[in-house]
Amino acid sequence: MGWQSTGLSWPHDGPVLGWRRSDGAGRGRMSVLAYGKELGFRAEGERRCTGARGNPCPIAAVVPVRTTGARCPECARLDRAHSVAADTIADDPRPYRVYLAWFGPGMVKVGITRESREAARLREQGAVVFTWLGRGPLMAARRTEEVLRSALGVPDRIPYARKRAVRGELPGVVERAAEVEGLYRRAVALEGSGWPETLERLPFEAVDHAGAFGLDTVGASAGAVSGRVVTGLADGGAVGGRLVAAAGPDLHLETAADGFVVLDTRLITGWDLVGGDARAVLSVPVTAAGGGGVQDGLF
């Protein structure tokens, strides 16, 4: 019996892969990933729905190999219906935070996240730099997000392909922080004319994740973080290599025979996975850098 990945998470400063038994027995486990270390696995069988809200899919539906959600339509609907992003739980009493996230030059988004999650969501999105803007009730945070998105001309979502494309050519720490600070000052200038009164403004502090992502090391050169992209797994398909960097759901691997590749770990959920040779020839579909979807829910 193999294991199924529950995805890449960022509980602290480094990436962690979650796993559960394919048969659902026993407790899950976590694998802390370290840059410079090798990893390898092989997919078996068919990719099946991961269920919704912690519950297994009742029919174990087969799902497409190239989707990032790994859920059948019914489970996807159930999962979405209980998310903050769907605006179905407007009475959520928990505090939320509004943030500005920077992914590369001219690539900034505004968003909100539950305060108890701290900066985990920013790392999950692959934000190289971010700053908090304010904190308060959900609807106040949501309203502020909408106001700032319109006033600053920034989106609430950025395609992962665009984020990947710029990781190897980032400006320095000072330049990164300066661009975020400029937008922060424009945002707080709207206080009183657009911000809800119940949203508390927070001071500017640029938090830089380049070190946590491994992007400031020699190994994370332009070639190392902008290589080809895995587009999906297949029965018997093998992936392996040396981890040189990670950001959001992406693992940037240096393979023994195929150069640098990017693995979006959302594509491995739903598969039965067994250990494999980290130096084996890559045997899954890949495409040139630039492929990829838009990030999933924001919370």
Rank of each mutant, 00 (worst) to 15 (best):
R185N: 11
G227A: 06
P203F: 11
G248T: 04
A224F: 05
G223R: 14
L263A: 07
E197P: 00
P171I: 13
A210R: 14
L253H: 03
A222Q: 14
A210G: 08
T231H: 06
V188W: 06
A246W: 01
L170R: 05
D250I: 00
D235V: 00
G219E: 14
A247H: 04
A257Y: 11
V173A: 14
G240C: 04
V174Y: 11
A222K: 14
L253I: 04
A222F: 13
G192Q: 07
D208L: 08
G194E: 05
E179G: 07
E200C: 00
E205F: 12
L233S: 07
G227K: 02
A220C: 11
R242D: 05
L170N: 09
L199S: 01
T198G: 06
A187M: 03
V244E: 11
R242W: 09
V244D: 06
V173M: 10
G192W: 05
R201I: 13
G240D: 02
A177N: 05
L199D: 01
L253S: 03
S221C: 14
A238G: 03
G232I: 02
G241W: 00
G241D: 02
E175D: 15
H252M: 12
V207F: 14
L251W: 08
G182R: 12
L251P: 01
A245K: 02
Y184K: 07
E169W: 08
A238W: 06
V244H: 10
R185C: 07
A247R: 05
A187L: 08
